[in-house]
Design a protein around this nucleic acid. Structure first.
Lengths: 129, 129
DNA sequence: GATACTACTATCCTAAAGGATACCGGTATC
DNA sequence: GATACCGGTATCCTTTAGGATAGTAGTATC
């Protein structure tokens, strides 16, 4: 193991703790079963509550409502009330939500590579027998 | 919102599902309270069970054992038994664990930026009052 | 022979996430 | 006036993650 490549955990315990906390923050805002699918279904434009529910398939209104509120708090989603009769309410991604793109791309790429890696090791292990 | 910048979720529903799953895989292997701190404490070299426990402070042996087993399954950690009397067992990061570095750096950077962002919005909101 | 250390496992318990189901007020439609 | 749709909330229940506590087999130390 080459220490030079582990810059972000280089032996300063303070910086190291700060790094761990920052990572945890990020994992937290993406955590849970529905945050990602929710962000994904909103990438095509604003949607109404029931439409999101239908798009996600299995989510109950309680959970959906909670997740949307959390995404709103983190400024990833904007809730808009239109004064039609009856009122229409839409949810849409904010420009700030785009800041997640790089992170998500990295997470996706690593996930894809990891699947390959696991398949490879399983193949090797079965050949050894 | 500019569609061009959302390449990874572009409207193909198949590719989109695959992306979400890949992201979920990655989040999964990093999930939990102890995976990150565990990886961090192993960056300085191999450690024995009790030493890891002492380094992390609060972790119980049951949890530590479980987390180590999971990290081993994902090939981030190698467990080695030395035939001393009594046996000595060490855990160390594998070369493959370095593949996580890029992901972790991105997660850390976004987390740091997000803190700034939140502080900024709170400042603005309090100024408006 | 009592105590202590290592590397764990086993059992029980708690808290949090998530889900099932029911309901609500408002409006529109038949 | 009955039914249906929208945007949720309220209540209860299950599952899971994580922790507390105790114990185990083997060895070494006093």
């Amino acid at each position: 193991m080459n220490d030079e490549q582990r810059l972000h955990f280089k032996h300063d315990p303070e910086a190291c703790k700060a790094s761990v906390n920052a990572v945890r923050d990020t994992l937290y805002v993406l955590s849970g079963k529905w945050k990602l699918p929710l962000i994904v279904s909103l990438t095509n434009g604003p949607m109404r509550f029931k439409d999101i529910q239908r798009a996600l398939g299995e989510i109950t209104p309680k959970i959906l409502s909670k997740e949307l509120r959390e995404l709103e708090l983190n400024e990833f989603v904007k809730r808009t009330v239109f004064p039609t009769t009856p009122v229409t309410i839409t949810y849409e991604l904010t420009p700030y939500s785009q800041s997640l793109d790089k992170v998500i791309v990295e997470l996706r790429n690593w996930g894809l590579e990891h699947r390959k890696h696991i398949r490879e090791s399983m193949r090797k292990r079965s050949e050894e027998e």
